[in-house]
Amino acid sequence: MAKIITKTNLAPAVYEFVVDAPLVAHKCHPGQFVIIRTDEYSERIPLTIADFDREKGYITLIVQAVGNTTKHLCDTFNEGDDILDVVGPLGHPSEMGKFGTVVVVGGGIGVAPVYPIARAYHELGNKVISIIGARDKDLVIWQDKMAAISDELILTTDNGSAGRKGFVTDPLREMLEAGEKVDLVLAIGPVIMMKNVAATTKPFGVKTTASLNTIMVDGTGMCGGCRVMVGGENKFACVDGPEFDAHEVDFANLVMRQQMYKDQEALEYSCGGHCKCVEE
């Protein structure tokens, strides 16, 4: 049981939840995630730990309402409510070290999981160049927080409503073509974005990491539902990842597997049918 301390609307259908989860807050590191179950009827869904406060025992989750469980959480859970289960921290923490120049790329709400990792890179003395992108200016989140821990921040929007018009890969490609020495690229966001980032950096031989959002159930390596091909080998994203060498990931298979429950997801009631949030 984890109590919601604060709930903030960051962008349309995007909420920030600060949650009281001392066991997780005590142990987590950037790059790790939790699995939550909102209530007895809920599925188990993974959410990245976007920030944490060890002293207070709080973790921050940024949730985008994309389907039934996330909508149920965003629409019906408020300050003071309890999330029934929060388990973690899960997955390997991001690899940390002094690499030199690191480009972190966050697409959409991918900015949230990027943030604690970028902050840690920054604290370790790396030069951090952040590229954050969204479809529209209204969907940009945490720009200030990112700016505070970046040596350079580039914002892109698909429609040009803020920052430069285009995709996150545009400034990245220019940077690499201009011969800027980049030691590591980290990309978190929609699969298609991570795939394009990997394609952009590959010709330059720049080490690139992506955090994969496979479908998960237990998050402990027990079900194998999160399996993904990396370098021709099957890996379990929950225990072997979630970060992998982006040049080795079979993104096409990942996209395909994310579609497995498309039919059922369209059917599902937001609350499993147990609250009044979607009276037809």
Binding site: Y41, S42, R44, L267, Y269
Partner: peptide
């Protein structure tokens, strides 16, 4: 599926009562 995933979805997550329980199973 692995048997573990299939059975976990159905037993632990009660997918046999989907959509009353929200976990889907194919």
């Amino acid at each position: 599926y692995s048997a573990n995933e299939f059975l976990t979805r159905v037993n632990l997550m009660k997918a046999y009562e989907f959509p009353n329980y929200a976990t889907p199973v194919y």
